[in-house]
Design a protein around this nucleic acid. Structure first.
Length: 602
RNA sequence: GCCCCCGUAGCUCAGUGGAUAGAGCAUCCCCCUCCUAAGGGGAGGGUCACACGUUCGAUUCGUGUCGGGGGCACCA
């Protein structure tokens, strides 16, 4: 057996060979686990217990036979039968010693695997309405989606990152109206501002800029704006819709300017915010183009042809109950406007047509009832719903001073993503956001995220990286030469423990991709950093023994590489120095007051 | 009412069906003449909510109960 592979793949091949003597290969999967206890070896295999029943033999006896059939390997020190029938494998130090050099050779590629087989995956995330600043909830979706996309890419998928822009709906009309009403007040045309319109300061700011750019061009009489509008108190939604209709009539072709201005401002703001956060999209997909290109008509017709559409009360309904939904859903409203759902069906059919092997949607947990509906529509249209995976991201709750920061849509109070980033810094934001499983509520501890102390896991990991940089710089040699180090000199238990941990990185990335679970990268990095700090405390690197020094430096250089690669997957920087001055978040931008409030209707 | 998520140490949470269930924080004790102490070592702390089932083996899978959170629009 060759040893060009990593130790684990090597062992899997050995066991595959041995076990095939006793059972058909397709009936068993060789699983090697890393025992929690060092006394149980480097790996443990449970295949004997799996086979025992079929063979009607004692598991320990089966284990004995399997061991006897294992091909010889120059990596294996010894094997043991333990407990109910585990085969514990102890590897020779050489199995791990090579890991450091292999890592250095792989460089930025280390951790990459081919489990994705080059398949095309699209991941759509954030997709917030461009009706106001992104808030901390969007931030979690952004951090999760961006990290997951990186992980999938590193696991060998071709990833496309997409943001779906809701630029066609009623919410955008409400934003345009809100902006226009603020603008009118600048010309002393006062229309009572509806409570259910967008209240935020950013709306007034847009009105100011329109007034500065175009003066009175869009000014109309307040009396005309409120003509024939239902009472706001008794019919708030009808009131709003009538104001929008009046705005469209009074402005004519100019309405598109106000609408477009508001859209561009908010979309641009969100894009800048995300870019500063390290979240970059390949595609910004406009909902409006679905309407204009007739794709929605086409999608609904497609459903119609399959007999899943009926008319009732002047609207067109999709018979989603056939596909497990609780009730049928409207696709074309009585007023002749397609619902968001109709656009979404067309959007997902379009995604499929673009040739992705797999499509992943990252949605807020409040959309969970929507999954069966979309999948049902895809099925009804003759598409394979299993190509779509919807991952729900639960809400994030901010805690400060032991108090939950109340952020309810109802009270119109929330903290923006930008405020959070300026308060705690991008690195801590990105890291804390992915520190929990996505389907779990996240308690975001602001005090901890802000603390520049050993309690803060971000600094703990970054410090490990900075420590290595510091040692290598104190050494002052040529780092490229470290690949020639004699790794056989790495004998210390702490050194071997660190090597084992480094070897786990590729499979950790692969598992994170498989489970759509970038949080496991964060946990891995904490473990890796702990291992490094442990070694730091027990071994001197810059020793007189030149050969040993180079071997140890090659080990920490490899560790640094894994820390860098791992942090990069999470969008967290790997600083070469940690100084409390420089680490202050938002040094380039003044920290925003985090308690400030914004109105949010979306 | 129906659906989704969760229940693991005092707190916040990890834990591909495996052996004596882990980490950080908090509490207590110890370690800088030395490459950054933003670090390391040690101690205490558990009925993995509960019951039944599946099996060689269950914190993990299934069913049910209890408890917490969220969602159920001709909104997006």
């Amino acid at each position: 057996m060759t040893r060009s592979q990593d130790p684990k793949s090597h062992l899997v091949a050995l066991f595959q060979h041995a076990a095939s003597q006793f059972a058909k290969a397709e009936h068993l999967s060789i699983e090697l686990e890393r025992p929690k206890q060092a006394s149980h070896g480097d790996f443990a295999c449970n295949v004997a217990m799996q086979l025992a029943k079929a063979l009607k033999r004692n598991p320990r006896e089966v284990a004995q036979s399997i061991i006897a059939s294992l091909p010889a390997s120059d990596l294996v020190e010894k094997t043991e039968i333990a407990g109910p029938g585990f085969i514990n494998i102890f590897l020779k130090p050489a199995a791990w010693q090579n890991v450091a050099l292999q890592t250095l050779q792989a460089g930025e590629e280390y951790g990459r695997s081919g489990v994705g087989q080059g398949k095309k995956v699209q991941i759509e995330f954030v997709s917030a309405n461009p009706t106001g600043p992104l808030h901390v909830g969007h931030g979690r979706g952004a951090a999760f989606g961006a990290s997951l996309a990186n992980v999938l890419g590193h696991a060998g998928y071709q990833v496309q990152r997409e943001y779906y822009v809701n630029d066609a709906g009623r919410q955008m009309d409400i934003l345009a109206l809100s902006t226009w009403l603020r603008y009118l007040s600048l010309g002393n045309q006062f229309v009572p501002f509806p409570a259910n319109a967008y209240q935020g300061d950013y709306v007034s700011a847009m009105a100011d800029s329109i007034f500065a750019l175009h003066g009175e061009r869009y000014m109309r009489l307040a009396a005309a704006v409120i003509a024939n509008v239902p009472d706001a108190a008794s019919d708030p939604e009808g009131h709003l819709d009538a104001l929008i209709a009046n705005a469209k009539n009074l402005l004519g072709a100019d309405y598109a300017y106000v609408h477009g201005h508001a859209l561009e401002e908010q979309l641009g703001d969100g894009r800048n915010d995300l870019t500063e956060f390290g979240v970059i999209f390949d595609t910004w997909f406009s909902e409006k183009t679905l309407h204009e290109s007739g794709l929605i008509d086409k999608a609904v017709k497609q459903l119609q042809q399959h007999g899943h559409i009926y008319e009732q009360n002047g609207a067109l309904w999709f018979r989603s109950t056939v596909f497990g939904d609780e009730k049928d859903r409207v696709v074309l409203r009585e007023n002749g406007i397609y619902t968001y759902f109709a656009a979404d069906i067309a959007y997902h059919l379009n995604k499929f047509e673009r040739g992705f092997d797999r499509v992943i949607d990252v949605w807020g947990a409040d959309h969970h009832g929507y999954i069966s509906r979309v999948k049902g529509a895809l099925t009804a249209a003759g598409a394979d719903p299993d190509r779509l995976t919807v991952t729900l991201v639960q809400f994030a709750v901010l805690w400060e001073g032991g108090q939950k920061k109340s952020m309810s849509t109802r009270s119109g109070q929330y903290v923006t993503l930008r405020e959070l980033r300026h308060e705690v810094g991008n690195d801590a934001c990105r890291f804390f956001y992915v520190l929990r499983k996505s389907d779990q509520h996240l308690d975001f501890d602001l005090d901890l995220a802000k603390s520049q102390s050993n309690d803060n896991p971000v600094y703990y990991i970054q410090y490990a990286h900075a420590r290595i940089c510091s040692v290598l710089s104190a050494w002052g040699g040529i780092e490229a030469d470290l690949v020639d180090a004699n790794s056989a000199r790495l004998q210390h238990p702490q050194e071997l423990a660190l090597l084992r941990r480094i070897a786990e990185f590729p499979e950790t990335v692969a598992a994170a991709a498989r489970d759509l679970a970038p949080h496991s990268i964060a946990y891995y990095l904490k473990d890796l950093a702990a291992e490094l700090h442990g070694l730091y405390a027990s071994c001197q690197f810059l020793v007189d023994d030149e050969e040993l020094k180079l071997a140890r430096l090659s080990l920490i250089a490899a560790t640094r590489l894994v820390l860098r690669n791992g942090l990069a997957l999470l969008g967290v920087s790997a600083p070469e120095r940690m100084s409390r001055e420089a680490a202050r978040p938002g040094a380039e931008t003044p920290p925003a007051e985090i308690g400030s409030t914004q109105q949010n209707l979306a």
